[in-house]
Amino acid sequence: MTYIIGIDGGGTKTTCLFLECGGTTYPKHPLMVNGPGTNPHVVGFEEAGRRLEHLLRHGMQTFSLTPRDISGAGMGLAGVGRPDEVEQMTGIVQTLFFNLKFSENLNLFITSDVHAALKGSLPPGIDEGMLLISGTGSNAVGITAAGKLVKCGGWGHLMGDEGSGYQLSLKALSKVAKAADGREASTQLTSLILQTCGLERPEQLIRYMYERPFEKKEIAAFAPCVIKASEQGDQTAVNLLKEAAEELVLHIGSLVKQGVDPKAPVSVAGSIFTHSHVLRNHVGRLLEDRQFGSLTDPYAPPEYGAALLGKPAGMDKER
């Protein structure tokens, strides 16, 4: 039995799957190991390579695999989307494959984590689809019937990330300020955000927010307050999530304009979709109203998609 390696490398965690070559569906009992993040823009390209090598050694030891058992590898890595990044990472991975004594003819496919996530989201037999992501940031990716990969978003928090946890949090903080001034109605967001910050009055937020720089993920940490308030029926929070849904569905419209069948299935991913039924339900309604494809759960995780992308030629390889 031979295996294909599938890796989903994020900023904080990396998952490695060893997929049997003969399988046509996601296994009930996948052979997986986890390690630290491998985004090269966070940890550096060389360190990302070292972490990948350590994870592969650990996985092969765990499942008693030898280099001869590996016939291909696909890697979906955060921070590796542009051609120069792929080229640099490919050189590093080829070196670690040499260290692991893998065959020099081993098939290797390196791409972005979003591409791998899209591939994993599609059920067997479906080649065209879209993936909409709302977590700390937001973006969307699709693949056409001809195999062309198209994207929307990914401009970062200064220029984009509409419908993301980051943008939801910024808008929630603005709503708290407006409510405190009497410019808008009171909202449960005020008490929830103050509680999160350990503060008593809205005015204290000024010093709290400006006394030091906040990272993107720290700002996005206020998004659960929006979700919780919406679950309690707070109309301000509900409206913020509906606005986010509108922004996110614009991403789908862009993918359709770039050639994806409007009726292709749309999968969603990211922490905001995971935890907010208000956002998910409104996105579903908007897709239906605009006659786009129906909202579906991803078929399998990104590491499975990475493994499929790493299939050697002659083994139903799909890119």
Rank of each mutant, 00 (worst) to 15 (best):
M1R: 14
M1D: 13
I5K: 01
G6T: 04
G6E: 10
G9K: 03
G10T: 08
G10W: 05
L19S: 03
E20K: 15
G22P: 11
G23L: 15
T24C: 07
T25F: 08
Y26R: 10
N34S: 13
N34L: 03
G35T: 08
G35W: 03
G37S: 01
H41C: 01
H41F: 01
G44T: 10
E46W: 01
A48W: 04
L52I: 08
H54D: 09
L55D: 03
H58C: 00
H58L: 00
G59V: 00
M60K: 00
F63R: 09
T66Q: 03
T66W: 02
R68P: 02
S71F: 14
A73R: 04
G74L: 04
G74Q: 04
G79M: 00
R82A: 15
P83T: 11
D84T: 09
M89E: 01
Q94V: 00
Q94P: 01
T95A: 11
F98G: 13
K101E: 14
K101L: 12
F109T: 15
S112H: 02
S112G: 09
V114G: 03
L118D: 05
L122Q: 11
P123M: 14
P124D: 09
I133Q: 07
I133W: 08
S134Y: 12
G137V: 05
G137M: 01
A140F: 09
A140R: 08
I143S: 10
I143P: 04
A145W: 03
A145F: 07
V150Y: 11
K151V: 12
W155K: 13
G160H: 07
E162P: 08
G165V: 10
Y166T: 09
L168I: 10
S169P: 08
L170F: 09
A172P: 07
V176Y: 00
A179I: 07
A179E: 04
A180K: 05
D181T: 11
G182V: 01
E184C: 10
A185G: 07
A185C: 08
T190G: 06
S191K: 12
I193G: 00
I193Q: 00
L194S: 05
L199W: 02
R201A: 08
L205K: 06
R207E: 15
M209R: 07
Y210S: 14
E211K: 13
R212A: 14
K216M: 04
E218Q: 15
P224C: 02
V226I: 12
V226P: 12
I227W: 02
K228H: 11
E231H: 11
G233H: 00
T236P: 02
V238E: 07
L240W: 13
L240I: 06
K242R: 15
E243K: 13
V249Y: 03
L250T: 09
L250H: 03
I252S: 06
G253R: 02
G253A: 04
L255H: 05
V260I: 14
V260P: 00
D261W: 06
D261H: 06
K263L: 12
A264Q: 02
V268E: 07
A269Q: 14
S271C: 09
F273I: 13
F273E: 15
F273C: 13
S276G: 09
S276I: 08
R280L: 11
E288K: 12
F292T: 00
G293F: 10
G293W: 12
G293R: 07
D297K: 06
D297L: 03
D297N: 04
P301W: 02
P301N: 02
P302T: 14
P302S: 15
E303Q: 15
A306T: 00
A306E: 04
G310W: 02
P312M: 13
G314W: 05
D316Y: 11
K317M: 15
